[in-house]
Computed example of a mutant assay.
Amino acid sequence: MTVAKERISRRAVDKFAQRREQLAESALQALADLGYARTSLREIAQKSGFSHGVLHYYFADKVELLTYAVRKFEKVCVTRYDDVVADAGSADELKRGFGAAMAGTLRSDAAMHRLWYDLRNQSLFEDSFRADVLDIDAQRQDMVWRVVERYAEFAGQPPLVSPEVAYATFDGLFHRALLHQLSGQQAAAEGLAADVEELLARLV
């Protein structure tokens, strides 16, 4: 293959990837608004400005598009608390920062978190994206565990629970707060921050 043909081929690949990114952004909005079960490729196409045929050209089906879109969102999510860990100079700073960060994402990204829980629930019935859900869940667990380990270092004590238990507990608090936030409870985020701080202190 000549250099010119290689460049043309590379541009075609880049354009294909860019279009998938655009479609994924539109899909995330549609899926976050309507949920997995109520969203079709046609509805996503209407929101994206692309035709149904174009959407189907870039993604084989809704499952592929959904998984791609959620993974795109999760790239940000799974490092959300790393700056909190890096910037904290004490156990108290880390505790407050972690609580504030969880409260912040509850306020700003509630629809996207709702989509994640929808996807995770759907994976109990559809094995086509179960592996992706398990992988994302494992990354989220690692993210939370980095916070717990750092807090334990500040406290000079080992964690009292396993990574699995720590993640499940924080996830349970967040899931409950998300339901309250979506129900219009104004104090949901503040309550989550306080609960997260208390829980982190009890895990070490």
Rank of each mutant, 00 (worst) to 15 (best):
E126A: 12
R80M: 12
V76R: 07
H175R: 11
K95N: 13
H180Y: 15
R20K: 10
E198R: 15
L34I: 03
F125C: 14
R11V: 08
L106D: 01
T79N: 06
A111Q: 07
G49F: 06
G53Q: 09
M112S: 12
R19H: 11
A4C: 07
N121F: 13
R120H: 15
R140L: 10
Y81H: 09
V84T: 04
E153D: 10
E153W: 10
G99Y: 03
M112Q: 13
A45Q: 01
Q122E: 12
A30P: 00
R107P: 03
S108L: 13
P163N: 15
F73M: 02
Q46R: 08
D137F: 13
S108W: 06
A194Y: 15
A86F: 12
K47W: 04
Q139L: 11
L94I: 15
R7Q: 08
R7N: 07
R176P: 00
A17P: 00
E197Y: 04
R120K: 13
D109E: 15
Y81A: 11
S48Y: 07
H175Y: 10
L28F: 02
D127L: 14
Q141C: 13
V54H: 10
M112G: 07
S48G: 09
K62H: 10
H175P: 02
Q29W: 04
E21W: 12
D195E: 15
G49C: 05
A155G: 11
R42Q: 11
Q46N: 04
L179K: 14
V204Y: 08
A101Q: 08
F154D: 05
A45N: 01
A188Q: 02
K72G: 01
A12R: 08
D118K: 02
G156D: 10
M143R: 04
E126Q: 14
